[in-house]
Amino acid sequence: MGRATLYVPGLSSMADVATIASLNILGEVAKKTAQFGTPLIVPTSDPIVYTVAREVVKESYTAAGRPDAFHQDIVFFVTDQQFAFAAAVDGIMTREKPATNFLIGMFWAESLILAETGAATGAIQIAGTDAIAQLPFFITACDYTLIGEELYAASAYISREPVLLGAIKAQDYAKALITIIIVAFSLIALGLNLPVLKWL
């Protein structure tokens, strides 16, 4: 109960789908921290993400019936400089020793510094990003990792937004179609020896 939860919604702007997905998940996490009275820390590195994140958290605290527990310092703007941001969050991790770190959204090279410090402080770390180059690092340095599209799916199911859920469904159908074509054409090619590659 005493130790805080840290939530970093990535370093990108609202233009990134990963950031939007992350803020959806932040809403759910904030509801839980409000219910259990756990302190929440949300450092941001983009002025617009900062504004949106503050609204999201405020709403969640109200929805959880704890509007009194919301205060201005939960969500704050640090800096838009990549490594300066990493250094600042690093400082928070070593000082506050949060029990859980969420690193969800768009990350670049700073992912390493964040995940490393979090692991060293012994926090449970949950990461999620669609930045493929950073995923291997998160998988080895964090306890749970949402891989690429899993992030969108998690966000869609949590927010229950029909547009997001619809997009997931449509893409699933397309994937199923690709799978069927690959399998069916292979079987036709192997069994009947027809020139299937020319049909595509």
């Binding site: 090279a109 390493l112 490393e116 060293a120 291997p136 690092f137 998988i139 080895t140």
Partner: peptide
């Protein structure tokens, strides 16, 4: 090139074979 350093210290302090997936990943690496 600073990344080389960040990575080496993360290699030492954070990259753990904490479950089957991570172990497989490190092995392939």
């Amino acid at each position: 090139s600073l990344l080389a350093f960040f990575m080496s210290s993360a290699a030492y302090r954070a990259f753990r074979a904490r479950n089957l997936e991570a172990t497989l990943l490190l092995l392939a690496a």
